[in-house]
């Protein structure tokens, strides 16, 4: 990543966490993120989100849309699926196939998308 892109990503991450500067304290999540985690990388998140599109492609009754939901909500959901606190066959195996950093990347990407009408 270029330095400029990194700064944009870091600022984006800070905004998502409700802060203004990258070093601002993040809001507490339902499942705490590991310490010293890299800033969310929405470009990487966009790649990870391609897999989600097979099922989460729109507002259908069986599978919820993810675009525009809060970073905290999405991240907490992924952590809960990964730990088994929340259960769903596909979401469990998908969440566990991601590292904690990757769960942050994909949550950041969906949080940054406009909600579907």
């Amino acid at each position: 990543m270029t330095p400029a892109a990194f700064l944009i990503a870091a600022a984006f991450a800070a905004l998502l966490r409700g802060g203004v500067f990258p070093q601002a304290a993040p809001e507490p999540l339902q499942a705490p993120a590991p310490a010293a985690e890299a800033a969310p990388d929405p470009e990487y998140g966009a790649w990870l989100a391609e897999a989600c599109a097979a099922c989460h492609g729109g507002a259908t009754p069986g599978v919820p849309a993810l675009e525009g939901r809060s970073f905290a909500e999405l991240r907490a959901a992924l952590e809960a699926y990964a730990s088994g606190a929340r259960t769903h066959d596909q979401m469990g195996v998908v969440a566990r196939s991601l590292t904690p950093e990757e769960r942050g990347h994909v949550a950041a990407w969906f949080a940054g998308r406009p909600a579907e009408p």
Binding site: A53, C55, G57, V63, D89, Q90
Partner: peptide
């Protein structure tokens, strides 16, 4: 990591799986 439905699942779970199948097809 694999997964599979269970024979002992509730009717609600099976119905949710059906809704998921329809949603997947539309999305896919």
């Amino acid at each position: 990591e694999p997964f599979i439905s269970e024979t002992g699942e509730s009717a609600e779970t099976r119905k949710a799986t059906e809704a998921e199948a329809y949603a997947w097809y539309e999305s896919f």
